[in-house]
Amino acid sequence: MTTHHAPSPTGVDDDAVARAPSLKSIYVYEAPVRLWHWVNALAIVVLAVSGYFIGSPPPSVPGEASDNFLFGYIRFAHFAAAYVFAVGFLARLYWGLVGNDHSRELFSIPVLTGAYWREIGAMLKWYAFLRPYPNRYVGHNPLARISMFFAIFLGGIFMLVTGFALYGEGAQAGHWSHTLFTSWVLPLFGQSQTLHTWHHLGMWMIVLFVMVHVYAAVREDIMGRQSMISTMLSGYRMFKK
C-alpha cells in the first residue's frame, strides 16, 4: 500500500495524478454539433415555456391595454426562439453533410442492419436491469439514436412546419411563411384549431423526449461505461471501464 499524505491546499497533487488510471478518449462531437446542441436546448426550453403560456395565458395584468404588452412579449419570445430553432436546424443539417460520421447519426437509422437492432435489444436489457453493464458506444447509443431521429429530426420538422404555418396565419398572405407553409398546411389539417392542437401535442412529445433524454444522459454518465454530459461540452468521449 502506498502511503497517504495530506492533500496540498493548492489542489496540486502530481503523485495522485501519476497513480490514477488513464482513461481512453475519442473526439466525437465537433464544435458546431456541441454549439448547436446547447443553443437548441435553450431554444426548446423557451419555446416550450412560451408556447405553454400562449395556450394557457397567465393571469391578466392590470392597467391600460396601451401600457402593457405582456402577451405580445410572450409571443415574441416564442417566435424569436422559433427562428433560432429553425436556423439552428438548417445549420445542423448542413453540418450533417460536411461533419464527421457522428454528425450524421441524428438524420437516419440503419433499419436494414441487423446488428443495430441487436444493440437496441442490448440497451433495452440494460435499462431493464437484465445486464450488469451496457456495451460501449462511441457515438450515440442505438436507443438514443432512434429516439433522437424521431423526436428531434422528424419531430423538429413537424414542429417547424406546423409552427411556421401558424405563424403565417398572423403574418397573412404574402409573407413567406404563409406562402411556404400556411397555404398548404392549413388545408391539410382542415382548420386552424386542429393545427393548433397538433402543434400543442408536438410540444408535449418534445417535453417527454427531453425528460427521458436528460435522465438517460445523467444515468449513463454515472452508471454507464462512457462519459455523456462532459462529452457534449468538450467533444471527447471517455471510456471508464
Binding site: P59, S60, V61, A65, D67, N68, F69, F71, I74
Partner: peptide, 10 residues
C-alpha cells in the same frame, strides 16, 4: 389590444 397586453376575461 387586450390580447397583446395580456388582459383576459376569466
Amino acid at each position: 389590444p387586450h390580447f397583446d397586453a395580456g388582459q383576459f376575461v376569466e
